[in-house]
Protein backbone atom coordinates (compact mmCIF):
# COMPACT_ATOMS: atom_id res chain seq x y z
CA UNK A 1 0.00 0.00 0.00
CA UNK A 2 2.85 2.29 0.87
CA UNK A 3 4.27 2.28 -2.60
CA UNK A 4 0.87 3.09 -4.06
CA UNK A 5 0.59 6.05 -1.71
CA UNK A 6 4.06 7.32 -2.50
CA UNK A 7 3.40 6.88 -6.21
CA UNK A 8 0.20 8.92 -5.96
CA UNK A 9 2.00 11.69 -4.11
CA UNK A 10 4.90 11.58 -6.54
CA UNK A 11 2.82 11.61 -9.70
CA UNK A 12 0.56 14.28 -8.24
CA UNK A 13 3.56 16.51 -7.70
CA UNK A 14 5.03 15.99 -11.09
CA UNK A 15 1.81 16.33 -13.01
CA UNK A 16 1.02 19.50 -11.09
CA UNK A 17 -2.71 19.22 -10.95
CA UNK A 18 -3.29 17.01 -13.97
CA UNK A 19 -5.59 14.42 -12.45
CA UNK A 20 -6.06 10.97 -13.85
CA UNK A 21 -9.45 10.12 -15.29
CA UNK A 22 -10.78 6.58 -15.48
CA UNK A 23 -11.90 5.29 -18.82
CA UNK A 24 -13.93 2.07 -18.58
CA UNK A 25 -13.37 -0.81 -21.00
CA UNK A 26 -15.13 -0.55 -24.31
CA UNK A 27 -14.80 -1.12 -28.01
CA UNK A 28 -14.09 1.00 -31.02
CA UNK A 29 -14.02 0.44 -34.74
CA UNK A 30 -10.53 0.95 -36.13
CA UNK A 31 -10.46 2.89 -39.36
CA UNK A 32 -9.07 0.03 -41.43
CA UNK A 33 -10.70 -2.99 -39.81
CA UNK A 34 -13.59 -3.29 -42.25
CA UNK A 35 -16.34 -3.16 -39.67
CA UNK A 36 -14.62 -5.22 -36.99
CA UNK A 37 -14.62 -3.78 -33.50
CA UNK A 38 -11.57 -3.86 -31.24
CA UNK A 39 -11.89 -4.27 -27.49
CA UNK A 40 -10.03 -1.74 -25.35
CA UNK A 41 -9.28 -2.54 -21.70
CA UNK A 42 -10.06 0.01 -18.99
CA UNK A 43 -7.28 2.52 -18.32
CA UNK A 44 -6.57 5.80 -16.54
CA UNK A 45 -5.40 8.82 -18.48
CA UNK A 46 -4.19 12.33 -17.74
CA UNK A 47 -7.09 14.73 -17.59
CA UNK A 48 -5.17 17.14 -19.82
CA UNK A 49 -2.14 17.07 -22.08
CA UNK A 50 1.21 17.52 -20.32
CA UNK A 51 1.94 21.25 -20.02
CA UNK A 52 5.15 23.21 -20.48
CA UNK A 53 5.45 23.70 -16.72
CA UNK A 54 4.94 19.96 -16.09
CA UNK A 55 7.68 19.22 -18.58
CA UNK A 56 9.95 21.86 -17.09
CA UNK A 57 9.85 19.99 -13.76
CA UNK A 58 10.77 16.82 -15.60
CA UNK A 59 13.81 18.21 -17.44
CA UNK A 60 15.04 19.79 -14.21
CA UNK A 61 15.23 16.37 -12.59
CA UNK A 62 16.24 14.55 -15.81
CA UNK A 63 19.13 16.54 -17.32
CA UNK A 64 19.55 14.06 -20.18
CA UNK A 65 16.27 15.40 -21.61
CA UNK A 66 17.32 19.04 -21.68
CA UNK A 67 17.57 20.89 -24.96
CA UNK A 68 21.23 20.91 -25.98
CA UNK A 69 21.93 17.78 -23.95
CA UNK A 70 19.51 15.30 -25.50
CA UNK A 71 21.08 12.95 -28.05
CA UNK A 72 20.24 13.42 -31.72
CA UNK A 73 19.01 9.82 -31.88
CA UNK A 74 16.20 10.78 -29.48
CA UNK A 75 15.24 14.33 -30.53
CA UNK A 76 15.80 16.50 -33.59
CA UNK A 77 17.23 20.02 -33.55
CA UNK A 78 13.84 21.72 -32.96
CA UNK A 79 13.35 19.98 -29.61
CA UNK A 80 11.82 22.45 -27.09
CA UNK A 81 13.04 25.32 -29.24
CA UNK A 82 10.14 27.48 -28.02
CA UNK A 83 11.62 27.57 -24.50
CA UNK A 84 13.86 30.43 -23.46
CA UNK A 85 16.60 28.11 -22.13
CA UNK A 86 17.27 24.42 -21.76
CA UNK A 87 15.56 24.32 -18.35
CA UNK A 88 13.19 27.32 -18.36
CA UNK A 89 10.05 27.88 -20.38
CA UNK A 90 10.70 31.56 -19.77
CA UNK A 91 7.25 32.78 -20.78
CA UNK A 92 4.43 32.84 -18.25
CA UNK A 93 1.77 32.62 -20.95
CA UNK A 94 3.13 29.23 -22.02
CA UNK A 95 3.14 27.55 -18.63
CA UNK A 96 -0.32 26.04 -18.82
CA UNK A 97 -0.18 25.45 -22.55
CA UNK A 98 0.47 21.89 -23.71
CA UNK A 99 4.14 21.11 -24.22
CA UNK A 100 4.94 20.60 -27.91
CA UNK A 101 8.19 20.23 -29.86
CA UNK A 102 8.84 17.03 -27.91
CA UNK A 103 9.95 13.78 -29.49
CA UNK A 104 8.33 10.40 -28.91
CA UNK A 105 11.36 9.34 -26.87
CA UNK A 106 11.09 12.36 -24.57
CA UNK A 107 7.34 11.87 -24.15
CA UNK A 108 7.89 8.18 -23.41
CA UNK A 109 10.60 8.97 -20.84
CA UNK A 110 8.34 11.53 -19.14
CA UNK A 111 5.52 9.00 -18.79
CA UNK A 112 7.91 6.31 -17.57
CA UNK A 113 9.21 8.69 -14.89
CA UNK A 114 5.64 8.63 -13.55
CA UNK A 115 5.38 4.82 -13.88
CA UNK A 116 3.02 5.41 -16.79
CA UNK A 117 3.24 5.10 -20.57
CA UNK A 118 1.94 6.78 -23.71
CA UNK A 119 -1.57 5.76 -24.79
CA UNK A 120 -1.78 3.14 -27.52
CA UNK A 121 -3.42 4.05 -30.81
CA UNK A 122 -6.36 1.84 -29.77
CA UNK A 123 -6.78 3.64 -26.43
CA UNK A 124 -6.47 7.06 -28.00
CA UNK A 125 -8.81 6.34 -30.91
CA UNK A 126 -11.33 4.83 -28.50
CA UNK A 127 -11.28 8.06 -26.52
CA UNK A 128 -11.38 10.12 -29.71
CA UNK A 129 -14.91 9.06 -30.59
CA UNK A 130 -16.50 10.93 -27.68
CA UNK A 131 -17.53 14.54 -28.10
CA UNK A 132 -18.32 17.17 -25.45
CA UNK A 133 -19.92 15.97 -22.25
CA UNK A 134 -22.34 18.84 -22.54
CA UNK A 135 -23.69 17.41 -25.78
CA UNK A 136 -22.98 20.69 -27.53
CA UNK A 137 -21.46 20.02 -30.92
CA UNK A 138 -20.55 16.66 -32.42
CA UNK A 139 -17.03 15.37 -32.52
CA UNK A 140 -16.62 15.39 -36.30
CA UNK A 141 -17.57 19.03 -36.76
CA UNK A 142 -15.34 20.09 -33.85
CA UNK A 143 -12.41 18.30 -35.46
CA UNK A 144 -12.99 19.60 -38.95
CA UNK A 145 -13.30 23.15 -37.67
CA UNK A 146 -10.01 22.71 -35.82
CA UNK A 147 -8.22 21.13 -38.78
CA UNK A 148 -9.32 23.92 -41.07
CA UNK A 149 -7.88 26.63 -38.79
CA UNK A 150 -4.13 27.35 -38.86
CA UNK A 151 -2.14 26.47 -35.73
CA UNK A 152 -2.06 29.61 -33.57
CA UNK A 153 1.36 31.05 -32.88
CA UNK A 154 0.81 30.72 -29.14
CA UNK A 155 -1.12 27.61 -28.22
CA UNK A 156 -4.07 28.09 -25.86
CA UNK A 157 -3.91 26.60 -22.38
CA UNK A 158 -5.11 23.11 -21.60
CA UNK A 159 -8.77 22.84 -20.50
CA UNK A 160 -9.90 25.35 -23.11
CA UNK A 161 -11.74 23.20 -25.68
CA UNK A 162 -14.10 20.57 -24.27
CA UNK A 163 -14.16 17.69 -21.83
CA UNK A 164 -15.73 14.39 -22.79
CA UNK A 165 -17.94 12.00 -20.81
CA UNK A 166 -14.94 10.71 -18.85
CA UNK A 167 -13.82 14.20 -17.87
CA UNK A 168 -10.84 14.10 -20.26
CA UNK A 169 -10.05 17.52 -21.75
CA UNK A 170 -8.97 18.66 -25.22
CA UNK A 171 -8.88 15.30 -26.99
CA UNK A 172 -9.58 17.31 -30.12
CA UNK A 173 -9.11 20.97 -30.87
CA UNK A 174 -5.80 21.77 -29.19
CA UNK A 175 -2.88 19.58 -30.33
CA UNK A 176 -2.01 16.26 -31.95
CA UNK A 177 -0.77 13.67 -29.46
CA UNK A 178 1.93 10.99 -29.52
CA UNK A 179 0.93 7.34 -29.22
CA UNK A 180 2.99 4.53 -27.75
CA UNK A 181 2.70 2.46 -30.94
CA UNK A 182 2.65 5.25 -33.54
CA UNK A 183 5.13 3.14 -35.50
CA UNK A 184 2.69 0.44 -36.50
CA UNK A 185 2.76 -0.78 -40.05
CA UNK A 186 -0.26 0.91 -41.56
CA UNK A 187 0.90 2.97 -44.47
CA UNK A 188 4.51 2.26 -45.29
CA UNK A 189 3.77 0.01 -48.25
CA UNK A 190 6.90 -1.97 -47.50
CA UNK A 191 5.79 -5.34 -46.24
CA UNK A 192 3.38 -7.94 -47.49
CA UNK A 193 0.39 -6.56 -45.60
CA UNK A 194 1.13 -2.90 -45.95
CA UNK A 195 0.47 -2.56 -49.62
CA UNK A 196 -3.08 -3.78 -49.20
CA UNK A 197 -3.55 -1.53 -46.19
CA UNK A 198 -2.12 1.41 -48.03
CA UNK A 199 -4.49 0.77 -50.90
CA UNK A 200 -7.41 0.53 -48.56
CA UNK A 201 -6.50 3.91 -47.10
CA UNK A 202 -5.59 6.03 -50.01
CA UNK A 203 -6.97 4.59 -53.23
CA UNK A 204 -10.44 5.79 -54.11
CA UNK A 205 -11.92 2.37 -54.70
CA UNK A 206 -10.15 0.95 -51.68
CA UNK A 207 -11.53 3.54 -49.29
CA UNK A 208 -14.74 1.51 -49.03
CA UNK A 209 -12.66 -0.93 -47.01
CA UNK A 210 -12.35 1.60 -44.20
CA UNK A 211 -14.77 1.27 -41.31
CA UNK A 212 -16.17 4.73 -41.97
CA UNK A 213 -14.98 6.27 -45.26
CA UNK A 214 -16.46 9.63 -44.24
CA UNK A 215 -14.26 9.76 -41.15
CA UNK A 216 -11.86 12.22 -42.72
CA UNK A 217 -10.44 13.14 -39.32
CA UNK A 218 -9.40 9.56 -38.60
CA UNK A 219 -7.74 9.32 -42.02
CA UNK A 220 -5.83 12.48 -41.18
CA UNK A 221 -4.67 11.07 -37.84
CA UNK A 222 -3.51 7.78 -39.35
CA UNK A 223 -1.72 9.58 -42.15
CA UNK A 224 -0.06 11.98 -39.72
CA UNK A 225 1.10 9.20 -37.38
CA UNK A 226 2.59 7.19 -40.21
CA UNK A 227 4.62 10.21 -41.32
CA UNK A 228 6.31 10.61 -37.93
CA UNK A 229 9.69 9.36 -36.81
CA UNK A 230 10.57 8.83 -33.17
CA UNK A 231 12.93 11.80 -32.92
CA UNK A 232 10.66 14.24 -34.77
CA UNK A 233 9.41 17.30 -32.94
CA UNK A 234 6.40 19.21 -34.24
CA UNK A 235 4.96 22.58 -33.19
CA UNK A 236 1.49 21.20 -32.50
CA UNK A 237 2.33 17.67 -31.34
CA UNK A 238 2.31 16.94 -27.60
CA UNK A 239 1.18 14.06 -25.41
CA UNK A 240 -0.48 12.78 -22.27
CA UNK A 241 0.16 9.61 -20.26
CA UNK A 242 -1.82 6.50 -19.44
CA UNK A 243 -1.81 4.21 -16.44
CA UNK A 244 -2.76 0.62 -16.95
CA UNK A 245 -5.26 -0.78 -14.48
CA UNK A 246 -3.77 -3.87 -12.83
CA UNK A 247 -6.10 -6.82 -13.07
Amino acid sequence: MNWILSFLIFSGNLASGADLKSVPEGTYRPLLAKGKTTPVAAFQIDETAVTNSDFQLFVKSHPEWRRGVVKALFADSKYLHHWRTGVEVGDKSLEKAPVVNVSWFAAKAYCESRQMRLPTVDEWEYLAQFGPESGKGDVKSIILEWYSAPTPEVLPNVRTTFSNRFGVWDVHGLIWEWNYDFNTAFVTGESRGDTALEKSMFCGSGAVGAADPSDYAAFMRFGFRSSLKGNFTVANLGFRCVKEIQK
Partner: peptide, 18 residues
Protein backbone atom coordinates in the same frame (compact mmCIF):
# COMPACT_ATOMS: atom_id res chain seq x y z
CA UNK B 1 11.30 4.07 -33.41
CA UNK B 2 14.95 5.03 -33.82
CA UNK B 3 15.11 3.06 -37.07
CA UNK B 4 11.80 4.17 -38.58
CA UNK B 5 10.81 0.51 -38.59
CA UNK B 6 7.09 -0.15 -38.37
CA UNK B 7 5.45 -3.28 -37.03
CA UNK B 8 2.11 -4.29 -35.68
CA UNK B 9 0.72 -7.49 -34.20
CA UNK B 10 -2.06 -8.67 -36.49
CA UNK B 11 -2.82 -12.04 -34.96
CA UNK B 12 -1.76 -14.28 -32.12
CA UNK B 13 1.61 -15.00 -33.71
CA UNK B 14 1.46 -12.85 -36.77
CA UNK B 15 2.82 -9.39 -37.52
CA UNK B 16 2.61 -6.88 -40.28
CA UNK B 17 5.98 -5.15 -40.56
CA UNK B 18 8.44 -3.19 -42.67
Amino acid sequence: ATLDFKYQKTGKRDFSHS
